[in-house]
Nucleic acid binder design. Structure first.
Lengths: 226, 226
DNA sequence: GCTAACTTGCTGGACGTCAAGCAAGCTAGG
DNA sequence: CCTAGCTTGCTTGACGTCCAGCAAGTTAGC
């Protein structure tokens, strides 16, 4: 594209494999999350990353391998976010009710700010989890969450055996508005991008979880996470 | 396939437009729910319905129109099921707590027995609701549900303004295990086809909803719907 | 025999993958 | 320093496959 002799030619783009690889990964994440695996072509990904249609294949070999790389990176990010969120909350709160409220609230805010993760998981779930199965971290992440929850339940003199059910409820309630913005939410006239709605939703989820545990409302300091 | 002169040829299939149309619709519902819109070809649908690859197009014109027909039929069925379920529960229960518990429980059992609906909605949601938008009943169905819930909330001296949030939670908690059987549930070692798990899940959802409303546990007669 | 109920052949487009090619640097040898 | 030769980064063309839609054909039933 950039003719060597042309004075008007852009510097084009410095050749930088690592940078290009990341750009492809970013573009793939956005498109896979938006349209799903089937409906996204390698050409689309290349175009979105500002490279040719062959470049994604050059770096990742096959479309499936690229998808796996996207899933893995995204899962690791969420796992890290939850871990650090939990530590942050435990540093400033000690009552189990406050801790559960804080962690659930932070999780809610994280996925709201990074909806790609939820959409990727949703596409993958509908496809039967065939690609995710080859991505190790997802099992560890789920079990980490359930055992952390069981720990708090135990401290709150609740039943730790309820932890898996409670986790399913937390995730289900948190993911739902992100996924169904254009169907159920639209039919109800709710706008999932409205900060007011999100704040209300976060409060509702936290309240349902706490009341479900028989725990009191959290103290004021936990009403909003940092 | 059936060679005209061949004596071994099957009686083939009596010609019956209405029956064939239904067969195509059934096959399309199953395949769209299973694989999604993009990954399902009209040829696959024809094969599953026991007709040629051109027959779906003959009856429904275009793939998109067939999809819309599937969505519409499925939505009407759910709407009818919820309506009749509500009437059935109200005929045998009068306390708001019992009614809410009964209707939520019946809804849970219906979608568990007919998971096609949930999967169709989920695919559609991820695709941006573009096809569902042209199917009128879905808005009415959602609003019907929220106003019914608001009514019960009002009777239970709860806040009717909480009805939309509560509906989102009920749907989110109920749908989640159906959708994520192969991802989150699998990672946690839970089997969503196990009746024991489903029973546990149903109780958990109903309990969370009731406690969220500040309502007591339902009376024994509502522990299991008819 | 005529119309409705299908089936079969065809066409144009899209996509994943592979392979060839080119160009921008890097490096060794002078 | 400078340049030949090699490596790496990326693009382009080609091939095989698949599919939706259309049109022409065929069969069944009245």
């Amino acid at each position: 594209m950039a003719v060597p002799g042309s004075p008007a030619s852009l510097p084009d783009r410095e050749r930088n494999a690592a940078r290009t690889r990341e750009a492809v990964l970013d573009a793939a994440e956005a498109l896979f999350a938006e349209r799903g695996y089937e409906a996204t072509s390698l050409g689309d990904i290349g175009a979105a990353a500002g490279v040719s249609r062959g470049t994604p294949g050059y770096f990742f070999g096959t479309k499936l391998e690229l998808h796996r790389a996207v899933l893995e990176r995204c899962l690791e990010q969420v796992r890290a976010a939850v871990r650090s969120g939990r530590e942050r909350v435990r540093a400033r709160a000690h009552e189990p009710a406050d801790i559960v409220a804080g962690v659930v609230g932070e999780y809610f805010e994280y996925i709201t700010a990074n909806p790609n993760f939820v959409r990727l998981m949703e596409w993958e779930a509908l496809a039967g989890g065939r690609h995710l199965r080859e991505v190790p971290p997802h099992v560890a992440a789920a079990q980490e969450a359930v055992s952390a929850l069981a720990e708090e339940l135990d401290l709150a003199s609740g039943d730790p055996a309820e932890a898996p059910q409670l986790l399913l409820s937390i995730i289900g309630m948190s993911w739902f508005p992100l996924v169904h913005s254009s169907t159920v939410l639209a039919a109800l006239g709710l706008d999932p991008l409205d900060p007011g709605f999100l704040e209300q939703r976060r409060r509702h989820v936290v309240a349902l979880v706490l009341r479900g545990l028989g725990l009191p409302e959290p103290s004021l300091s936990e009403a909003r996470p940092a």
